[in-house]
Amino acid sequence: MARISASVYTSHVPAVGAAIDLGKTAEPYWQPVFGGYDFSKQWLKEQKPDVIFLVYNDHANAFSLDLIPTFAIGTAAEFAVADEGWGPRPVPKVIGHPKLAGHIAQSVIQDDFDLTIVNKMDIDHGLTVPLSLMCGQPQAWPCPVIPFAVNVVQYPAPSGRRCYMLGKAIRKAILSYDEPLNVQIWGTGGMSHQLQGPRAGLINKEFDTSFLDRLIADPEGLSKMPHIDYVREAGSEGIELVMWLIARGAMDDVNGAGKPPTVRHRFYHVPASNTAVGHLILENN
């Protein structure tokens, strides 16, 4: 039987990817950001997950306005790196896990979450920046990755509650998979940031701190926070944080199957470009 051993949460700022690709990680501006991931890189090497289920959002790269799936699961054998306009990031392509992804899709859809199944899709910085932050610059990513894209581009994104419940259904699906795989689930995006209009540059440290606290200790309550609170308090793009609730909903404790998770790592820093960077690692007990 497959199991979920841990969940990882991180922002996926594009400038972070550019800083890595251009060799700027040791610069005074960037060092505090990357320093927050030193522990995480070592931790990931020791954990050796077999598969990472990576929740992220596409930023108008795989999906234009022609097609806007709310939840899309990548079931392909591999995924190419998108050219987002600056040329593709010089990072390895992503190897998928079609068998587990297909299994999850079949299970979750029968649990009333109507996923879009994607057999061909380029992946953008939303997916590759978290991998770079957690793995550095390897020749190949350490394990297969199942991309799971959530619409947060056209309002409304799915509610926090819906995301949280979906996480539970994903956990159930993974636990019913026959091979003994060590699976991690990652939730990415956020934290507070706004990229548009005269309010661009908004950062709300109090909101972010409270979000991290509640994600750890009160995810059930946090899942009921309405969209407008994200938009008003964390900025128009801060709404990406609903994706963290998918990963949190997949943890044992909120499914009546264990103690609260161990907080192995917590990090917060302002700024990375326009954005507050938040990062958590939670291990199931």
Partner: peptide, 26 residues
């Protein structure tokens, strides 16, 4: 960069916007 684009919408100069972000954001 995304920071230059975001900053261009705020009525601030590139330096002003960057300094605001380094000081903790808006």
């Amino acid at each position: 960069s995304f920071q230059q684009m975001a900053g261009s919408m705020t009525g601030m100069s590139e330096d002003e916007y960057r300094n605001m972000m380094v000081s903790g954001g808006r």
